[in-house]
Nucleic acid binder design. Sequence first.
RNA 1: GUGACCGUAGCUCAGCCGGUCAGAGCACCAGGUUGUGGCCCUGGGGGUCGGGGGUUCGAAUCCCCUCGGUCACCCCA
Length: 432
Amino acid sequence: MRFRTVKGTHDILPEEALRWRHVEEEIRRILELSGFAEIRTPILEQLELIARGVGQTTDIVTKEMFALERGEDRLVLRPEMTAPVMRAYLQHGLYTQGAVMKLYYIGPMFRAERPQRGRLRQFHQYGAEILGSSDPLADAEAIALQMGILEHFGLRQLRLRINSLGDATCRPRYREALQAYFRPLAERLSPSSRERLEKNPLRILDSKDPQDQELLAGAPRITDFLTEACREHFEQVKTYLEELGIPYEEDPFLVRGLDYYMHTAFEITSPLLGAQDALGGGGRYDGLAEELGGRPTPGVGFAGGLERLLIALETAGYRFPEPARPDLYIAALGPEARRWAFVHANRWRRRFSLQVEYDLAGRSLRSQLREADRIRARFVLILGEEELSRGRAPLKALDSGEQTLLSLDALPDTLIARIRRAESERSPTPSS
RNA sequence: GUGACCGUAGCUCAGCCGGUCAGAGCACCAGGUUGUGGCCCUGGGGGUCGGGGGUUCGAAUCCCCUCGGUCACCCCA
């Protein structure tokens, strides 16, 4: 085969697609339970939106974007969703639909990184944004929601780290203090940290370089630079988390690679993942709306990686739902019977919503039964010319192997009754 | 983007000090059972040995390049 998926992208084959759908449906259910409404935005956005939103000096913008040109337009495949959601919010004046807007999304994102486990060039995120509230309650709500989703799937040992990055008043002060501290030490910093010293000094904080970390030990802490209001905001977020019993760690070095964050930033990691261990993260981005030229709008949100969630669930031995079992397989022999199967499969699917299958390849009876067994059909109708002319055919229950001769006219009714009976025996009290 | 390791049927892998080395298990298809599944038995289809170039009488096996994957860095979902 000459063609294959492009680097860092994957096909999601039927078996796996089933898992994806399950996870997506659960996430939607939980988010909608909390009053979030879905938003879908284009995958293509203006490069400028992302550059301004995420930050000109960030790694995402400087080296990870899939950019393309089309005439005058400079476009990118979206690398994240907060800026696009904010763009849509401002563009469509969603602030007229209520003081606080709660939106969620699930979809593909693109970053041109070197692929590895849990890091693809096309990956998928679910996420939510709370727009229009600067209340620390909203920060806590976002964190609790994200944790709630992960815990819903039974994930344990989650590590939640939080930090406050201050606001437009304290952040610049801290930034200067950090530069003042590191400038004399610049020689000893790692090359990438040295590069960041002037452009984006906060990013030095989450360097994993051992030498950098040593120097960081003596660096000023953002916590000491927070204004009274910022400190208070952060304290309240923590208090709310405690009220829900959500354990967290304060990490003064947690920065995150998107410039729009201020006040709360958080990240959730799992030991099930390896090097790319963040299941999700987020924070507050009160300056973003103005940065995009819109009316000031506070916001807080989070995003989680679907691939990583799936990896974590698979290694945790999560029990995904089984594929639906066909109700009936019509094993037909001979042209007349095959035509009958074709007509009745289609009729019964439409009329009774029965999942009916039959052989499309003209195989032997034995093969058809094997096929019925392989796809775990509940019943098989065995139909030859003889049965057809008599109007009666054997119906075999594959689980028990028992076989009864039935009138073809009465078949759908009988089948439905037997399926209902089997279902009620399995779960006496119908519950979800 | 940097470094290391890996790349043989759909999947998991054996073969790799160059010369019946193109194989096994699983999966798939057919038959054993002239019309009855799951077990078993028999047979079959399927591979440019990731791709290209080189060394050699001869390369899956050695060398170079390239593509892809994995792991780490980086970064983050």
